[in-house]
């Protein structure tokens, strides 16, 4: 579903990713773990199409399409979703307006009918209930004044509405207490399906107790240095990342 080959990315002339490879099959959950500064967030932003990242080599395909050639909104329409580590606050734009415009833009691009206000509200409210969100969060400005937990729930709400093919969760556990973590994880697990894949980026193993991965990769020095099953996450939690930071032999 997602194929990343020999990806090299630089920011302001500084190499961040160098020779990154990843292959995620349909329905799989892959975790990418790594120390701070290893390029985890760069990976998520490059995949979503943020400005300021120079891809100097390599290619990325989503369902056989050249992802890097697409505008961010085209990537969303093609089924990519990035749950932000730091969801952006947008004062003055009501969350409901944002969610509906987002959903309808994606539906339109996918050849589906747009939802009217009533249909949208019905759909949003059903999903919000599962995430423990109140109606009031539709009226507030996007993420503005939301607590850390509310922001992350809002991210998962968007994910459940947009029904992506591939979701990238960037440090979704940061800033969450255990209860919020469980709610968010339940939201993600509820979306797991044979034709939907996840890339879970995290520093800690904790989140992987709730969202159990099929594969775990260690990202260090700009590339994947080791891959394994879910046990690898627990091993890293014990031993730390120090071993992976030494220059390659």
């Amino acid at each position: 579903m997602l194929t990343i080959e020999n990806l090299h990315v630089a920011v302001d002339g500084r190499s961040i990713l160098s020779g990154f490879d990843l292959d995620v099959g349909p329905g799989e959950v892959h975790a990418i773990m790594g120390p701070n500064g290893s390029g985890k967030s760069t990976l998520s932003y490059v995949l979503a199409g943020r400005d300021g990242y120079d891809v100097t080599a390599g290619r990325v395909q989503l369902d056989g399409q050249d992802l890097l050639a697409m505008a961010p909104e085209e990537r969303a329409a093609a089924g990519l979703f990035l749950a932000f580590q730091y969801p952006v606050e947008i004062p003055g734009v009501a969350n409901a307006t944002f969610l509906r415009q987002s959903l309808n833009a994606v539906r339109k691009a996918r050849g589906l009918d747009e939802l009217d206000a009533m249909q949208f509200l019905k759909s949003a409210r059903a999903r919000m209930k599962l995430l423990g969100m109140t109606d009031e969060m539709l009226k507030r400005s996007v993420n503005t004044g939301f607590s850390g937990g509310e922001k992350k729930r809002n991210e998962v709400l968007q994910m459940t509405l947009l029904e992506p093919r591939l979701a990238i969760l960037d440090e979704t556990d940061s800033g969450l207490d255990v209860d919020a973590l469980r709610i968010v994880a339940d939201g993600v697990n509820g979306l797991r399906a044979p034709d939907r894949s996840f890339v879970v980026i995290t520093h800690y193993q904790r989140l992987l107790d709730y969202i159990v991965p099929d594969r775990v990769h260690i990202l260090a020095r700009g590339r994947i240095v080791r891959s394994g099953g879910e046990d690898l996450a627990r091993e890293v939690e014990r031993t730390g990342y120090a071993d992976y930071l030494a220059p390659a032999a």
Binding site: A48, G49, E73, A76, G92, F98, S102
Partner: peptide, 26 residues
């Protein structure tokens, strides 16, 4: 730029995203 990217990453085309942000400002 971050607000614009956030909206676009949710599938909202650039022109529409700009309008949304201008309205939000006003």
């Amino acid at each position: 730029a971050d607000e614009l990217f956030y909206l676009r990453s949710r599938g909202i085309p650039e022109e529409q995203a700009r309008r949304l942000l201008i309205e939000g400002f006003l």
